[in-house]
Design a protein around this nucleic acid. Sequence first.
DNA 1: CGGCATCCGGGAAGATACTG
DNA 2: CAGTATCTTCCCGGATGCCG
Lengths: 231, 231
Amino acid sequence: MTNKSQPTSRRRYDDACGTALALDLIGERWALLVVRELMLGGKRFSDLKADLPGISANVLTQRLEGLEEHGILRRARLPPPASTQVYELTEWGYEAEPIVQVLGRWAVRSPEHDPTQWISAVSILLSFRTMLDARAAGDLDAGIGFRFGRESFLGRLKVGALAYRRGPFDEAEADVVFDGVPGALAAAVYGKVPFGELEAAGTLRVRGDTNLARRFTELFALPPKFALPER
Amino acid sequence: MTNKSQPTSRRRYDDACGTALALDLIGERWALLVVRELMLGGKRFSDLKADLPGISANVLTQRLEGLEEHGILRRARLPPPASTQVYELTEWGYEAEPIVQVLGRWAVRSPEHDPTQWISAVSILLSFRTMLDARAAGDLDAGIGFRFGRESFLGRLKVGALAYRRGPFDEAEADVVFDGVPGALAAAVYGKVPFGELEAAGTLRVRGDTNLARRFTELFALPPKFALPER
DNA sequence: CGGCATCCGGGAAGATACTG
DNA sequence: CAGTATCTTCCCGGATGCCG
C-alpha cells in the first residue's frame, strides 16, 4: 500500500502484483531468452551469444549480471581440465520453464508467427515438450536422439512426457536419431515437410527406426490460429 | 531457417520460437500490465492510466496501438448515452490469462517480492484466481462481493474455481462483501492481517458472513520463497 | 475531461572495436 | 574466449498543449 514513494531502483514497476515483479526480474529485453537457452543446461558466454542471434556482448553481460543478482542463474566453473566458466540456472530459474511454455503456446496462435525463421536447438527441443500431445503419445516409450552440430541430446519419451539429457549418447540408447539443423527438424515436425525433402537438402538426417521418426512428428500440432479481424 | 536477413521491423527477435514471438507481441514495457488490467473487462484510457501508476500517457497510447495491431485488444464504443471509448481484449487476448498467472506464481517466490506495495483491484482479484487452493476450497459454493471505490465485482466460488462478474451487484447475491482498498484485502488474505485491524484503519470493511470471510482468506497461500544463496 | 501529438532529457539497447 | 569501452540510436518517462 505504500505508493508514490520514490522509485525503488532503476526502472521497476513498484507493484505488489507478482506479474509485475516477474517483469522486473525477467522482463528486460533478451532476459527471458537467456533463461530459455539455459533451460536444458549451462552454457558459456560465447555459446549464449551464438545461440541468441542479434544480442550484443554488452547487453548479454548486463542480462547475466541482472539474472545472477536476482537469483535466477549462477556462474559455475567447470572442473579442470575444461576449467572454463559457464552460466547455469538455479533451481528457481529452472522453474521458469512454465513461463517459457505458456508464452510460446499462446503466441504461436498469432498470424505473425513465422516458423521459417531461425530457431535454436534448445528452442525446438523445449517446444516439443510444450506441444507434445500426451494423448497422442499414449504409452509410447522411446529414446530419441538429437544431434545439432557438436551439441547432442537424448530425449526420453515416456508416459506422455519428454525428458532430455544433454551430452553425448550411445547409438544403442536411441531408437531413432535426428541429425541436422534445428530449423529442419521444426519443418519436419510442425511444417510436416517429408524427411526425404530435408535429407535431399542436406539439412536433416534420420537414422534408426524411421517409422518411429514419422510417428514422432505426429505427436505435435500447432494450436489453431487466432483470426485477425479485417481492418 | 531464414536467418541473418535484414530485421523484419523495428526491434524484433526474428525467431521462430513462440516464446520470442510472445515477447515481440507483449514484451515491451507496460504491455502485459495493460493486458492484465483489461483481463476482467474493458476500460477507458484514463482508467488504465490511473490503474497503472507510473505509466505516461504517450507510452500508454503506444502500447494500446501496438496491442491493437497485434490483435490482442480492440477499441469499442459504448452505446449512448455513455458513448465513450473503451479498450477491451479480444478473445485471444483473454487467453493470455495463464501468462499473467504463471508469471505471478513464479515471481512471488522471489525474496524481492514486497506485498506492501501498491496493488490494483484487477491484480488482487486475478491473484485470487491464481493462488486459489482448489483442495482447500473443496465444494464450497459462495458469492463474494468486492467493492473498490466505484468499481465492484461479484465473485462466484464454485467447484474450486473463482469466476468474476464486473459491475454492480445486489447485496442478496453475495454471502459476504469486502469493501475497501485492494491493498487492504491483500493484507488480509496474504498477510493474514486480522480484519479488525484493517477495519480500525478504515481501509477495509467486511459485511455479511464474517465466518465465510475468514474461511475465504484461508483458501490462499503464497508459495515458499526461493532461498537466495549468500554472496 | 478523454485521447492523443509534440518536445525534451536520460538511459537502455545495438553495433563495432578493442583488450586480457 | 570472455568480456570491456565507446559511440550511436532509439525507447521510455515527464511535461505541455491541442482539440473534440
